[in-house]
Simulated assay, not measured.
Amino acid sequence: MMFYSLGRYILLLRLSFKKPEKFDVYWKEIMREMVSVGIGSLGIIAIISVFIGAATTIQVAFQLSSPLVPLSIAGKIARDSTILEFSPTISSLVLAGRVGSSIASQIGTMRVTEQIDALEIMGVNAPGYLIAPKIMAGITMVPLLVIISIVLGISGGYIACVVSGDITPADYLAGVRDGFDGLTIRVALVKAFVFGFLICSICSYQGFYTTGGALEVGQSATRGVVYSCVMILFADLVITSLML
């Protein structure tokens, strides 16, 4: 059963990326999905990033209370943990709930109301028209959102230093600048690219093969979010192991 589902998933991806009939129509859909995924998710990503960055910095400062450890190390730890793990992984898990459920519900509703059947009768490549723009938007906008999340997360740590006084802002900034390795940014962007693809493709698959009615649409959306989160965590482990 698992191999059958995997085969249908791969076949759906192949159909999604067939040569489009009219590129202009697909381009408009890609732009619309990019606005939905990127601009629509910016607020929640910004809020989460600032608070996680601030909380991480305060917790690191609490754990490094020894006078033998320089306080600037808190900035370095907060920076690397934000870049490598918090921003790409936590942001993607949030996006799986917000974007993934929307994708699965939208496509699932079109399936149960026979709109997808109507597209296929008219000769339209339904997977290409419905799924490819969402995947393109995901692999484009999720890395951009992760970059914004990294900046806001580090800024949140600075704000925490100013407010709490546990670490001076100068020590924090010194730690952020100390020993920066560009590999961490590359790892974060690779994670964001893969996570964006997984969210949009898995949730699209769940929605596309929905059968039944409104109850089944909700179940498809739930499965899409759960499977996306599991695959994000698995891919996070694999990418971390390979690149670090």
Rank of each mutant, 00 (worst) to 15 (best):
Y4M: 12
Y4Q: 10
L6T: 09
R8E: 14
L13F: 04
R14W: 08
R14I: 04
L15T: 07
L15M: 13
K22A: 11
K22E: 12
K22P: 00
V25N: 00
I30E: 04
M31K: 14
R32I: 03
M34H: 14
M34Q: 10
G40C: 13
S41R: 15
G43S: 15
I47R: 03
G53A: 05
T57N: 00
T57K: 00
I58H: 07
A61E: 10
L68I: 10
L68E: 12
V69D: 13
G75I: 13
I77F: 12
S81H: 02
T82G: 00
I83L: 04
L84Q: 12
E85A: 00
F86E: 00
S87Q: 06
S87Y: 00
S87K: 04
T89E: 01
L95N: 06
L95W: 02
L95V: 08
A96D: 14
A104F: 08
M110P: 04
Q115N: 15
L119H: 05
M122C: 08
V124N: 04
N125D: 12
P127A: 06
G128H: 07
I135C: 07
A137T: 12
G138H: 11
G138L: 13
I139N: 07
M141S: 09
V142Y: 05
L145W: 04
V146E: 02
S149V: 09
I150K: 02
G153W: 05
G153S: 10
G153H: 07
G157D: 04
C161T: 04
S164H: 03
I167K: 02
P169W: 00
D171F: 03
V176G: 03
F180I: 12
D181R: 14
D181N: 15
L183C: 00
T184Q: 15
I185K: 05
V190S: 09
K191G: 10
A192I: 11
F197A: 07
L198C: 05
S201F: 11
S201C: 07
Q206V: 04
G207Q: 02
F208R: 06
G212D: 01
E216Q: 13
Q219I: 13
T222L: 12
T222C: 05
T222H: 14
V225T: 11
S228Q: 08
F234R: 02
F234H: 03
A235C: 14
A235Q: 01
D236T: 10
S241V: 06
